[in-house]
Design a protein around this nucleic acid. Structure first.
Length: 111
DNA sequence: CTTATGACTTTCA
DNA sequence: CTGAAAGCCATAA
């Protein structure tokens, strides 16, 4: 399988707790490639869709907490709807959607 | 094997 | 602070 990387990404994304969000860099770092954030997004791009419902791709956003999706078949409102449904408040600014990383960022470690 | 692209990130001007 | 460019890694052609 030439997509072992993808599998890792999906596995991590699936482990994101409900009501939380993670950044591409976060996932990439967990996999072992902190610089492959873009690949994470791409992996989700490939897996995003009705064929891969087990992957909460909507919980994965960029470092600013903004939803980068725009050119996809999936409208941002769809992602926002799912996030809000999970209990995540999404702030809409113009055509961009932001999430409070300070509150909903997925943090495995706690002190 | 080389080139190009991308749902990103970081740094420089 | 805002905008542009380079960097990084994997997949596709």
């Amino acid at each position: 399988m030439s997509g072992n990387f993808y599998q890792k990404v999906f596995k991590k994304v699936k482990k994101i707790p409900k009501g939380k969000v993670a950044t591409y860099g976060q996932i990439a770092a967990l996999i072992g490639h902190p610089k492959a954030a873009q690949m994470v997004g791409w992996a989700l791009h490939e897996g995003a869709g009705p064929k891969v419902k087990g992957v909460p791709w909507q919980r994965v956003i960029n470092r600013e907490g903004r939803i980068s999706i725009v050119n996809m078949d999936h409208p941002p409102e769809e992602q926002v709807f799912l996030l809000r449904r999970e209990g995540v408040k999404v702030r809409q600014v113009e055509k961009n959607f932001f999430v409070d990383l300070n509150k909903y960022l997925w943090q495995l470690k706690k002190k």
